[in-house]
Design a protein around this nucleic acid. Structure first.
Length: 417
DNA sequence: TCTGGGGTCCTAGGACCC
DNA sequence: TCTGGGGTCCTAGGACCC
């Protein structure tokens, strides 16, 4: 049996954990560059603020006058996620983090009533990690996920939905709409509707071969999961990443190559850091840049993918990505976004040896290790490769970001007694 | 002034091979 | 009269997720 626990309005709850003035108020956390709404408290949802709504438009609407907005602060949210994980891990040995705010728990072998256990877990996460949550229980991930959504939808309910028994499922499926099912997006919903399927009960009863024709193997898998047949294994060890990206919109349009070069170099340095932190090397990289698609600027978009000598060396990678970026740069456009995506990743330890390496692998690893150690100890960007900017004026807007309460000594809260 | 970022999986179709 | 078929690999694009 599995449970899915997930933080309510997670980013907003993280902000509230350190700022009591946000309690009971409508709060929204914005995407990078203070662009769109990506997390809303219940109070903000009740006002009609939509997920993904561009804030520069929404903020002028009178109904959102009292909404408190925050720039996103991933250092804080990532650390709060880690705290949530630790609390859960004290209760349940097997925890699989699914996203920053969701974790699957393997309940097999645990004693007692699962709903009662879930209630205790939930209360402890609230008290210790300061995050309100909902819990869904079921025999497969898809069922647990759906149960979680049911729990969330019942605003005055207990925050827990238990679909562990076949009887509970049969009863619930009769009325649950397919839109609550994980993995069936707008395209799938339209097809289901066309086939006369509206409830989860109808979805489960649909002939398997027709389901395959309608929604391919993905839909078939979802159907099996809803029938209680697990197709998505519980994974205690996270799967190795297949790609790793750093992509950003700029705070203002970039029109000079020098600025683009600096941006691409900075994104590459950051992505290379991430590679190393996962113990990975990349064998190929994709670089892209494009203009603003929304504002009527003359459009230009380009991307290129090149193979690499497998590496996680910032200097080597910057050399390549800047060259690739230069090959697609065209003067006269107003660039809004660029990005670097590493693909064909493999573990550094299993990296195929090069016959003619262009860099001494031992010296490269030593240099990168020193770079990472110093930056971990003294703060990000203490040391950075030449040609990368610390906080250049094209960097993203974060006009209302909260302090890094949990990851910077200088931002620690003061307590007075 | 102003519209996010980072992932995974699946399929169709072309290139290529024998 | 009449011009194969099957397999693999790669890529682009779609769909979905948080």
């Amino acid at each position: 049996m599995l449970a899915l626990i997930d933080g309510n309005s997670f980013y907003c709850s993280c902000e509230r954990a350190f700022d009591p003035s946000l309690r009971h108020r409508p709060v929204v956390v914005l995407s990078n560059n203070d662009g769109c709404a990506i997390a809303r408290t219940q109070e903000a949802k009740d006002l009609g603020l939509k997920m993904g709504e561009p804030w520069h438009l929404a903020r002028h609407k009178p109904e959102f006058r009292d909404v408190v907005w925050k720039s996103s602060n991933y250092a804080l949210y990532g650390d709060m996620s880690r705290r949530m994980f630790e609390v859960l891990h004290d209760f349940v040995p097997s925890v699989e983090p699914y996203s920053i705010d969701e974790m699957f728990l393997d309940l097999v072998g645990l004693q007692g009533d699962l709903a009662e256990l879930s209630a205790r877990i939930r209360a402890t996460v609230r008290r210790v990690a300061k995050i309100p949550t909902c819990v869904g229980i079921g025999p497969t991930k898809t069922i647990a996920k759906m149960a979680n959504r049911v729990a969330k939808a019942d605003r005055d309910g207990p925050g827990i939905c238990d679909l562990s028994t076949a009887a509970a499922r049969a009863e619930a499926y009769k009325t649950l709409p397919t839109s609550l099912v994980w993995g069936l997006g707008p395209a799938a919903q339209a097809k289901l509707k066309g086939a006369g399927i509206n409830t989860v009960a109808e979805l489960v009863a649909f002939p398997a071969d027709e389901m395959r024709k309608l929604l391919t193997v993905t839909g078939l898998r979802t159907q099996s999961e809803l029938q209680g047949i697990a197709c998505m294994p519980f994974a205690l060890v996270p799967a190795t990443k297949k790609s790793l990206a750093v992509t950003r919109s700029f705070g203002r349009a970039i029109i000079e190559w020098d600025e683009m070069r600096e941006a691409v170099a900075s994104y590459t340095a950051r992505a290379a850091e991430k590679l190393r932190s996962h113990g990975l090397v990349a064998s190929a990289v994709q670089v892209f840049m494009h203009t603003n698609r929304f504002n009527g600027d003359p459009p230009y978009a380009n991307q290129a993918t090149v193979s690499l000598e497998p590496s996680a060396d910032s200097f080597a990678l910057i050399g390549t990505t800047v060259k690739v970026a230069h090959s697609m740069w065209r003067d006269g456009f107003r660039y809004a976004k660029a990005g670097v995506v590493f693909i064909d990743l493999c573990r550094a330890a299993e990296m195929p040896a090069q016959f003619f390496p262009t860099r001494d692998p031992v010296r490269s690893a030593a240099l990168m290790h020193t770079l990472d150690t110093l930056n971990r100890r003294f703060g990000r960007d203490t040391l950075r490769p030449g040609g990368t900017g610390a906080t250049p004026d094209w960097s993203m807007r974060r006009a209302n970001v909260s302090p890094a309460y949990t990851t910077e000594f200088k931002d620690l809260l003061n307590a007075r007694a």
